[in-house]
Amino acid sequence: MSSVVKVVQPTGILDGTKAGDFRQEVAELVQSNADIILINFQDVTFMDSSGLGALVLALKTIRAAGSKMYICSVNEQIKMLFELTSMDRVFEIFSTREDFESEVLSTR
């Protein structure tokens, strides 16, 4: 059985000004019946509490639809934010997209 994987790839700064667009994009992917949504932080340079809040809401939306959410390629600032808020225990985070693909997709 093949899973439908959709990728959200925010860029720049994920803060209050971009959080609404981010949540909208995630909601659209959930409605498109994605089984797995990967949030790729490769091009995100900074995230504040508004961005973190948008991620938590995205996770709730995705779980409510019966799908799974993963995160990959976070920089040191975002990694530190996750650790300080204990969100690193809530989100499943992979160092790279390749790590995500080898660990998650190869087991399906």
Rank of each mutant, 00 (worst) to 15 (best):
M1L: 06
M1K: 14
M1I: 06
S3T: 05
V5K: 08
V7S: 03
Q9R: 14
P10V: 10
G12K: 08
I13G: 00
I13P: 01
L14G: 11
G16Y: 08
G16N: 05
A19F: 09
G20M: 00
G20Q: 05
D21C: 01
F22M: 00
R23T: 09
Q24L: 08
E25L: 00
V26S: 07
V26F: 11
E28R: 15
E28I: 08
L29G: 04
L29V: 00
Q31R: 15
S32E: 13
S32P: 05
S32H: 09
L38V: 11
L38R: 12
L38N: 12
I39P: 06
N40C: 02
D43N: 14
T45F: 06
D48K: 05
S49N: 06
S50I: 01
G51R: 06
G51Q: 08
G51E: 02
G51N: 10
G53S: 10
G53K: 03
G53R: 07
A54M: 04
A54N: 07
L55G: 08
V56Q: 00
K60N: 14
T61N: 13
T61D: 07
I62W: 04
A65P: 12
A65I: 03
K68E: 15
Y70E: 00
I71S: 05
I71N: 07
S73T: 11
S73K: 06
V74Y: 04
E76T: 15
E76I: 12
E76H: 09
Q77R: 13
Q77K: 13
K79V: 00
M80N: 15
F82C: 11
F82S: 03
F82Y: 12
L84V: 11
L84F: 09
T85K: 11
S86F: 06
D88K: 03
V90Y: 06
F94E: 07
S95W: 10
S95K: 15
R97L: 01
R97N: 03
E98A: 15
D99P: 11
D99Q: 15
F100W: 10
S102E: 06
V104G: 14
V104A: 12
V104K: 12
L105A: 12
L105Q: 15
T107I: 05
